[in-house]
Each structure stands twice: as C-alpha cells, then as structure tokens.
C-alpha cells in the first residue's frame, strides 16, 4: 500500500522539459509553441519548454519573448546563447537549465508534430523505457513533401548506415514495437534526464551526427528503447538546414563511428 502511494507520488512529480534549439525559426516558433500547449494542456503532465536560440539574426528571440509573455515564464523558458554553437552543445545547455526529470528533444521546424508528445510519454510510463524515439517506418508513420531525390538520399543513407554499423548487431529491446535494428532514427525523442546526460557525455560528435551517435551509444549501453510511429511533414517555413556540406559531414562521421565504435 505504502509503495503504491509512493509510486503515484513520484508519477505526480514527473516533469517534462522540452528542449527547442532554434536558429532563424521566427515563423515556426509561435506555431510549434501553440501546438505544444494545445496538446499538453489536454493532459495532466507537467511540462516546460526551453527555447535555446543561437543568436538568430531574424529575431526569433523577440518572438520567443512575446510567447513567454502570453504563456508565462513557468511554461516558456528562454535560455538564448550569443551565437550559433551547434545542436550538441544546445542540448547540454538546455539540460543544465531543465527542471524536469524527463527531457524531450525536438526540432522547431514543425516537421515533428507535438501531437505525438503525449504518446511518447504514455509509452515511456507504460514500460519504464530509458528513451522513446519516433520512427517514420511503421504503421501510420511516414513523410510528406519529399521528392524522389530526397527520399532516395535517405534510403541510400540507411543502407550505408546499416552496412557499416549494424551488420551483425543484436536486436534492440523494443517490446511490442518493431525492430529498430535497421532504422536510421534521428528524430524526436524522450529521455530520462540522467540517461540523456550519460549519453551526451559518451558522445564525441557534433551537429546532426550527434543524434545518430546517441542512438548507437544507447544500444552499446543497453538502454531500453520504445518506439512511436510519427509523421514527418516537410518544413513549411524557412530553409532546410540539411545541405550538401551536412550530407558530406554525415558520411564522414559515419566512417568515424565505424572505426571507433
């Protein structure tokens, strides 16, 4: 009896810190915040959104300040940085200021819809996973607005990734969910805070590759991983930050992980 009471006490005190690193996202930021509030205020979950703006020249920070005024500083927390310092350090910066015991990482570009967040949380609670990741490959998951070239690029990368890094790998513990052994998941994720901290400490790469390395490290460290099918709608506003040089960086970083992990 006492244990049950204690459990519910812990559950009640769970808090989710959503980290939103931004760079030139003044169009997307208000929408994504509005959507997060819409879908999370429907639930009893306690949360905060931490906006980490890397000195965007388009005035993203001003937009963030307006949003903070509307929704309150307990919900919208601003932790801007002077200049563009990259995704990896943005997460470290965000975790330092997070008051929740769970961390949710997502892009601010609307391609990851906040309606999936409660599903992430529910699945984590149900199985006590160390982390939950989104996938576009099972059930109703998928993408919108990608042309042939881009889909082909992604699919080529998957093969490259799989051949180099996951050829003889044992299957991940994903319970009822599909086998993520062969998946190239770099998308929205929910982490236990201490797990994320440990993962970040064990990672060496930066930028986009950082997220990829995290999933590789998670497997090495034998963390339990849950999976939620998500849809990916290509960005409505602004330019994609995944250009030719990033793709080259990706390839290089994969080779590096190949040689070191």
């Amino acid at each position: 009896m006492a244990a049950t009471a204690l459990d519910s006490e812990i559950t009640k005190s769970d808090k989710y810190s959503i980290l939103l690193p931004t760079y030139n996202e003044k169009e997307n930021l208000p929408i994504i915040i509005w959507l997060i509030v819409k879908y999370l205020d429907n639930t009893d979950y306690d949360y905060e959104v931490i906006i980490i703006d890397d000195g965007s020249p388009d005035g993203t920070l001003d937009v963030a300040k307006q949003l903070q005024k509307i929704y309150g500083s307990h919900k919208i927390v601003l932790k801007p940085r002077e200049k563009k310092l990259g995704l990896g350090t943005a997460y470290i910066h965000g975790i330092k200021h997070a008051t929740g015991n769970f961390i949710i990482i997502m892009d601010a570009d609307l391609s990851h819809h906040p309606k999936f967040i409660p599903k992430f949380i529910d699945l984590q609670r149900e199985h006590d996973y160390d982390l939950v990741t989104g996938t576009r490959y099972v059930d109703e998951g998928g993408v919108y607005g990608w042309d042939f070239k881009r889909t082909r690029g992604l699919r080529c990368y998957e093969i490259y990734f799989r051949v180099l890094l996951q050829w003889w790998q044992k299957q991940l513990k994903t319970a009822t969910h599909s086998n993520i052994k062969f998946k190239f998941t770099i998308y929205k994720k929910l982490y236990k805070k201490d797990i994320l901290q440990k993962l970040i400490d064990s990672c060496v790469s930066k930028g986009y590759v950082f997220q990829m390395e995290m999933i590789i490290r998670a497997r090495q460290l034998d963390y339990t991983i849950g999976e939620i099918p998500i849809t990916f709608v290509d960005r409505v506003y602004g330019e994609s930050k995944l250009g030719g040089s990033e793709i080259f960086q990706f390839a290089k970083a994969l080779l590096y992980l190949f040689a070191t992990t």
């Binding site: 929408i31 919108y144 607005g145 042939f148 709608v233």
Partner: peptide, 29 residues
C-alpha cells in the same frame, strides 16, 4: 533503395491537418 523509395508512406492527411492547425494557431495568437 528503389523499393523503399516507392513504398515510403506519403502522409497527405498529416500535411492537411498541419496546414489547418497553422491557420488556427496564427488566429489564436
């Protein structure tokens, strides 16, 4: 690669839903 390109799920519905929500969000904000 080709097989997976052509069987990739295209989420028409999700895109429509998002457009509607963007309009709603702008108005509310």
């Amino acid at each position: 690669v080709l097989y997976r390109v052509f069987t990739f799920n295209n989420c028409e519905e999700a895109a429509k839903e998002l457009q509607a929500e963007i309009a709603e969000a702008r108005k509310d904000l």
